[in-house]
Simulated scan of single mutants.
Amino acid sequence: MSGKKVRPLVFDEVCDLFIALGANNSPSEMHGLLGGQLAAGKRMEMDEWLAEAREFIDTEASFTKEQREQLQYVYMSTLIALADDELGFYPLLPDDEADFDARLRCLAFWCQGFLAGFALVEKKIKDLPEVVNDALNDLAAISQLQTEDDENSDDNAEDDYMQIVEYVRLAAMNIFVEYAVDAIDAEDDAVQGKDYLDAQSLFKSRQLH
């Protein structure tokens, strides 16, 4: 699989992009939607991906050059991370300092997006491999998670959350392996000759928070 390494996406940086675009939905859900499609074997040219991102964000405004490159990086970094031999993929979620309820909601959004993205590609297949079917059922259950009111359960809830995130990221990578033997064959064509792997230059400013 991929020998390339990428700097992981940062939730707050993608949030800034969403704010600039006037989006009201969750970056986690969009990342899950993309991850589900990639895990099911779909590959997109950049124009197709940008059109899909525009539809998800629900905007008719034109992307700036910088916004296009940022969204292109979201695509490429997600594909390369899923194909990482060293299991470097992570769902796009708020960091540990964020409110626990917000993190749990974003995890549910990510799983909902992944399931929707996978279904878009695999909707005509009735008999899924057992490992894929089991993982999808688990992600469906996780997508329904809600916070607990018991304040005494905070420590346990935090531990449970971390274990669930670890399961989710490995489940996504396992599904990807089932469907993506040639994981990133088209990546050089997809970036249209430009290296989009420098996230520090693409997400170089966070002035909106």
Rank of each mutant, 00 (worst) to 15 (best):
E29W: 04
G32P: 05
L34S: 10
Q37T: 11
L38K: 01
A39S: 15
A40H: 01
A40L: 11
R43T: 15
M44H: 03
M46Q: 10
E48G: 04
E48N: 11
L50P: 12
E55R: 15
F56E: 03
T59L: 04
S62Y: 12
R68C: 13
Q70F: 02
L71K: 03
L71C: 00
V74S: 06
M76C: 13
D85R: 13
E86R: 13
L87V: 14
G88C: 13
F89T: 06
L92Y: 03
A98Q: 09
D99A: 14
D99Y: 10
F100V: 03
C106D: 14
W110C: 00
C111L: 09
Q112Y: 07
G113V: 09
A119P: 01
A119Y: 08
A119R: 11
L120G: 09
K123Q: 05
K124V: 08
K126F: 05
D127A: 11
L128G: 09
P129N: 09
V132K: 10
D134H: 11
L136K: 01
L139M: 10
L139W: 04
A141L: 14
A141E: 15
I142S: 00
I142H: 03
D150G: 02
N152W: 07
D154H: 01
D155K: 01
N156S: 11
N156H: 02
A157N: 11
Y161I: 00
V165F: 02
V165K: 01
V165T: 04
V168F: 06
A171I: 06
A172E: 06
M173H: 08
F176E: 03
